[in-house]
């Protein structure tokens, strides 16, 4: 099908962009790995999580940070395409307009999946162990993919509307900080009330707790529904805002 073919061609192009941009690889891969090392071997000893291995505790949050910073590049790639005129070139060609946008979304999904897998691999070397079976792994994959999709559509909005490169990249900063005010690195119980209420009711905690439970094969509470609701909700809202912004170009 024509739409799928064009999407694939454009997807190949942006994957090549990633391979040829060392800064993307450094930010998306090396930063989360450094954070994981820092928390595991510097702060980790002083953090009390109860029983269990701290690397195990860390992995879900690190994955979310990697995804949040990875999706920020979707904004940048879209912004550059607009700024450099590639967007206008594609739009004046007989190429489905959906392909132009979906190629970026697909690139984000695949490139983030690759970095998530690589980070898990490094975590294993650092001592990460899980009792998760195939189903639990699939569930973890599904949750992280859904989170990536939500963050990507969110990233499309500044990518299409920002007027400067700073504007296009700024949206990611708060997202990268959200895991620090969640259960990603420390249990929320020790936080002062206001912070704790925020931490316990923001999407990262629900996501982290669900993934952690899946990895540890412990019972998953209502957290998973809250995590899914957040992801689906953000995806739907961001998708509609992004498509509105995109229609301005047609």
């Amino acid at each position: 099908m024509k739409v799928w073919y064009a999407t694939r061609v454009l997807f190949g192009r942006s994957m090549l962009h990633i391979l040829r941009s060392p800064d993307t690889i450094i930010t998306v891969l090396i930063t989360p790995v450094m954070l994981m090392l820092l928390f595991a071997f510097v702060f980790g000893g002083a953090i009390h999580i109860g029983s269990g291995n701290y690397v195990n505790y860390l992995v879900p949050g690190i994955e979310l940070i990697a995804i949040a910073s990875g999706t920020a590049y979707t904004s940048l790639r879209l912004f550059y395409d607009r700024q450099k005129g590639m967007f206008a070139r594609f739009q004046t060609m007989p190429v489905s307009r959906a392909s132009i946008l979906w190629a970026h979304v697909l690139t984000s999904l695949i490139s983030n999946a690759i970095s998530v897998v690589l980070i898990i691999g490094i975590a294993f070397i650092m001592g990460f162990r899980t009792s998760a079976g195939v189903l639990q792994w699939l569930a973890v994959g599904g949750i992280l993919a859904l989170f990536t999709l939500a963050m990507t559509w969110l990233a499309v909005i500044p990518g299409l509307t920002a007027t400067s490169i700073d504007g296009a990249s700024a949206f990611a900063y708060p997202l990268i900080f959200l895991p620090f005010i969640s259960s990603a690195f420390v249990p929320t119980a020790t936080m002062p009330t206001i912070v704790r209420v925020f931490a316990q009711n923001q999407p990262v905690t629900a996501l982290v707790d669900s993934v952690r439970a899946l990895f540890n094969s412990t019972p998953i509470g209502n957290e998973i529904w809250s995590a899914l609701a957040w992801c689906v909700g953000i995806t739907i809202v961001a998708y509609f805002i992004a498509m509105r912004a995109y229609r301005r170009f047609q």
């Binding site: 073919y5 064009a6 061609v9 454009l10 192009r13 090549l16 962009h17 040829r20 941009s21 450099k84 005129g85 590639m86 206008a88 070139r89 594609f90 004046t92 060609m93 007989p94 190429v95």
Partner: peptide, 30 residues
């Protein structure tokens, strides 16, 4: 769009691709 081509005020080439890859990309899309 099947009948036109636009060369805008600022050259729209993909700097991260080689000259050849740029042309192959457009040829595939067309």
């Amino acid at each position: 769009r099947e009948n036109i081509s636009l060369t805008g005020q600022f050259a729209a080439v993909d700097g991260l691709l080689t000259g050849r890859e740029n042309l192959v990309l457009i040829a595939r899309l067309r």
